[in-house]
Amino acid sequence: MTTFINTQLLHLIIALVAIMAWVGLNALVLVYFERKFAGHIQRRPGPFEVGPHGILQPLIDGLKLMGKQLLTPDGADSVLFWLAPVLSFVPVLLLFAPIPYGPVLTGMEMNLGILLILAFAGFNSLALLLAGWASKNKWGLLGAARAVAQAVAYEIPMLLAVLAVAFITGTLNLTEITTMQGAWPWQWNIVIQPLGFIIFLVSAFGETNRAPFDLPEGESELTAGFHTEYSSMGFGLFFMAEYAYMVVVCSVCTVLYLGGFKGPFLDGWWWFLAKTYALLFLMIWVRWTYPRVRFDQLLNINWKWLLPLATFNLLATALFIKL
């Protein structure tokens, strides 16, 4: 029994270390790709000076953030102010644990893996609320209020889309959902749940505060939203957390709808990364293509379109299974 516990603990520690390295590497890669992608869409080179084609620019920016002074605004609640970025970033490490990146590349095998991800992802909303409220800045507080309203709204259709897949597969285990899908695209869940896939993807933009739904960070009217007063690694943790949550939602979408690590020729982590990064590039492409919507439009998209469609999709799925 003791040997089993020690083995499980060692496996979990190795998984957490690998996840931390994976999150850091993803942040560097995605920042570079986003800047380059934005540059090409806008007919400019993007970062070009530091390293070949600016490849070292994200690393230099990270070092610059770590070297800056940590400042607490006058009148702010210093404990909650600095707790917020930590609370936004730390739960990310648990979100990656139940995701099967390959046949044997799962940090922590769980029967309720999807439930763990949905539960701990909610901590980000609490972190954004603390960041805006504790900084004693009215623009930060308005940004936090927007963030909470947006997160609460878009969690509901996303949850309903996930439930439809759970109804079909009969499990909340991400590894089992992957194995129930075939190797070829017509054997993936997206074929029988195309509406659920679209709802999940649109909700993912809202959950991760990505354009055109990045209202909590509306620079034109709110300076920088909930992280107006943050500098140095306080801002850096929020920045890394945003990209980490992007990777999480794209990874979950890959498992639920795109066959996970399964591919036409040989199953493995390379298929998982290819599908996940294809979705990430789609999120980047949308950011630099579509303008930011108004806040009333943001909520109307959810309450008038996504929620009714997600409810209809769930009921239709339940009826199909019953018949």
Rank of each mutant, 00 (worst) to 15 (best):
L215R: 13
T208C: 15
I168K: 01
I199N: 14
P212E: 09
W186C: 08
A153Y: 13
I177T: 03
A164P: 03
P212A: 09
A204F: 09
A161Q: 11
L159T: 14
G170R: 06
G206R: 08
G218L: 05
F197G: 09
L159H: 13
N173W: 01
W184N: 01
V148Q: 10
L201P: 04
R146T: 07
I192V: 11
P185Q: 04
L201F: 03
T178I: 05
S220Q: 00
Q181R: 01
S220G: 03
V162K: 12
A183W: 12
I156E: 14
I198R: 14
F167S: 10
R146V: 01
L195S: 11
A151S: 13
D214L: 04
I192W: 06
P212C: 09
L195P: 11
G218N: 05
A147N: 07
T178K: 05
V191Y: 07
M180C: 01
T171G: 02
L215W: 12
P212M: 02
G182K: 02
L159E: 12
Q193D: 04
I168F: 03
L174W: 11
I177Y: 09
L201G: 01
A149L: 15
I199V: 13
T178G: 00
G182I: 00
G170W: 02
E221W: 01
E217R: 08
G170D: 00
T169M: 14
I156N: 13
T178W: 03
R210Y: 14
P194N: 02
P216I: 09
A204I: 06
R146H: 07
E217W: 01
T179K: 11
Q193P: 08
L201M: 04
I156K: 11
E219D: 05
A161E: 08
A145H: 05
P194R: 04
P194H: 01
P216Q: 12
A145C: 02
V191N: 05
P185H: 04
